[in-house]
């Protein structure tokens, strides 16, 4: 088959990429916060250069997301100053459900746990996710925010499935703990501010 004319390939890429922009931006916001636009720009340039390698357009969402994730990881590595591994021992015992029940932040509420979650706006959730090391934030965002299957995430990250599952487990625990700590620090647990 003769190679696709450059103009047609460019047009095909443009349509495909434009369709993915909202999703890419939403993921990037959760992975690199304020650098999201720059990360998506870098992703578009890299994806265009590698567009010849995409065999099926059905694979485009996962393909372009994996490029974005790598761009975000590179940016995360550039920012990271401390080791990113977190000891599981320190948080394995943590249960946000029990913490809320025990601390009873809204003593007059009939739906304590839901009321706790209602305190958080989009910016708060992004801020909480930003507190997680990339190692845990990336699989958490891809699986629970963007809906990718764990097997797809393992392929994207070029990481064994068992490792992805273990990082998801830690990521969920960390997310619960950070939600509580953020709520305490941001004053979301005071009845008077509700």
């Amino acid at each position: 088959m003769p190679p696709e004319p450059k103009r047609l390939a460019r047009e095909r890429f443009r349509v495909l990429a434009e369709e993915q922009l909202p999703r890419l931006f939403a993921i990037a916001r959760r992975l690199v916060g304020d650098e999201a636009e720059d990360a998506v720009q870098d992703t578009l340039l890299k994806a265009y250069r590698g567009f010849d390698h995409l065999e099926h357009s059905a694979a485009a969402p996962a393909w372009i997301t994996s490029i974005l994730v790598n761009v975000c990881r590179d940016r995360g590595r550039a920012r990271a100053r401390a080791p990113q591994q977190v000891s599981i021992d320190a948080m394995e015992e943590f249960s946000l459900f029990r913490k809320i029940a025990d601390e009873d932040p809204f003593p007059y509420s009939d739906s304590l746990h839901l009321d706790f979650l209602e305190q958080f706006g989009s910016e708060d959730v992004r801020a909480v996710l930003a507190r997680l090391p990339d190692l845990y934030r990336i699989p958490l965002v891809l699986v629970y925010v963007d809906g990718f299957a764990t097997k797809e995430v393992a392929r994207m990250l070029e990481t064994p499935l068992g490792t992805v599952l273990a990082r998801l487990h830690r990521g969920r625990k960390l997310f619960e703990r950070e939600l509580w700590e953020y709520a305490e620090q941001a004053g979301l647990l005071r009845e008077s501010v509700r």
Binding site: R10, F13, R14, A17, E18, L21, P22, F25, A26, R29, R30, E37, V40, Q41, L44, L45, Y48, L117, F120, S122, V125, R126, L140, Y144, V145, D146, G147, F175
Partner: peptide, 25 residues
């Protein structure tokens, strides 16, 4: 709760700048 936060919209001005990038490729 986590999935709900995915529905955030891309700001118009950001979208416009990214489209400009696509147009220049």
């Amino acid at each position: 709760f986590l999935a709900r936060e995915a529905s955030e919209e891309i700001p118009d001005e950001v979208r416009a700048r990214l489209i400009t990038t696509l147009d220049g490729l």
